[in-house]
Amino acid sequence: MVFVTGATGLVGSHLVQALVQQGRQVRALYRSAIPSYEGADKVEWIKGDILDVIALEEALAGVEQVYHCAAVVSFNPKKIHELYQTNIEGTANIVNACITAGVQKLLHVSSVAALGRINEGVAIDENMHWSPKTNNSEYGKSKYLAEMEVWRGIGEGLKAVIVNPTIILGAGDWNGGSSQIFKTVYEEFPWYTDGITGFVDVVDVVSAMQLLMESEVSAQRYILNAVNMSFKELFVMIAQCFGKRPVHKKVTPFMAGVIWRWEAIKYRLTGISPLLTKETAASAQAKVFFKNGKFLQQFPSFKYTPITTTIYNICNQLKMKHQLI
């Protein structure tokens, strides 16, 4: 029996579908409505969430493997409490429930945000450790502290492994999360920055997670990253796939500073979530490179999907999903 948290999200939904296709018994929590994606009808759904300790105890009865994909991703300063409660307290609850239930192995989906940031031009690997100097977001801090809960569980005898994906690309809800990038480009948003970061296909993330779960690896963390590239390069490739006009107006650091300050004022006046915050403005301008050698050394036969293939597949899936053809 496999238990999946965050089964309605981008990573969780793709993972559940992969597990169901393999004939695995899957159990998952839902808060308000059972999702309707392919394979969801073969899942044993339990109402609750990761802050519900009693629901977790019930959900983990007889479970051998746990994939913890649930998390809040937000850079809105007004959502810090929700961010910390779900990402840290929720992970602590999962770890405790795994120990109590005698779960064989836990896989925790973290983020490269938990590694912090270092001077530009220095590639980040798994030896990077978060610190106040390297951190640039409350989200990153919350994911780092969530990882500390997993390491605590490992210290208490739990077999567990952590993955740190870069920006995950997939045909999820394009009104939110990383999939929103595709909607933004489709609507011919003209602006771009010189920022560089890592990107990885959700299909590759799911495959890597399953390899790690079925292996003897424990007490390790792995960066999952297919390619480091600029936001502009990514946006242009997506625009070409959709047949839309690509980005053509550069956002300077000064302009970004003006925009996030204006968005902060607008949020205080209207309550509408800001399109850009101080943290996201800094991330969009930063040039950050991630290494992926540790995972590839552990699994030498693993191959990341080329970014061109990833974008082509996602664009086609979104075209069908939203009847854009």
Rank of each mutant, 00 (worst) to 15 (best):
V73N: 07
T270G: 07
I325P: 11
F3H: 03
Y30G: 00
I124M: 06
A101T: 07
V163I: 15
L275V: 15
E233K: 07
A61Y: 00
G177Y: 15
D204Q: 14
S13G: 00
C98Q: 09
N136G: 11
G121K: 03
H248L: 06
V150M: 09
W191G: 03
H129M: 02
I168G: 02
V288E: 13
N225T: 07
P274W: 12
R245I: 11
V66E: 05
H68D: 09
A286I: 14
L106F: 02
N93P: 12
N135W: 08
E126Y: 06
V247Y: 03
I88G: 08
S273R: 08
G176W: 15
Y186S: 07
N225D: 14
G9T: 02
G170R: 06
E187Q: 00
L276D: 13
H108S: 05
R245N: 10
K287Y: 10
E44L: 01
E188Y: 12
L324T: 11
T308Q: 14
L51M: 12
R152Y: 04
N93W: 10
T193R: 10
T5P: 05
L19W: 02
A208I: 07
F254Q: 11
E64Y: 00
I238F: 10
L10D: 09
N119H: 13
P35G: 05
I154H: 11
D52M: 09
A7N: 01
I167C: 12
W191A: 10
R268C: 14
F302C: 10
L296V: 08
S32Y: 00
A114E: 00
G177H: 15
S207E: 15
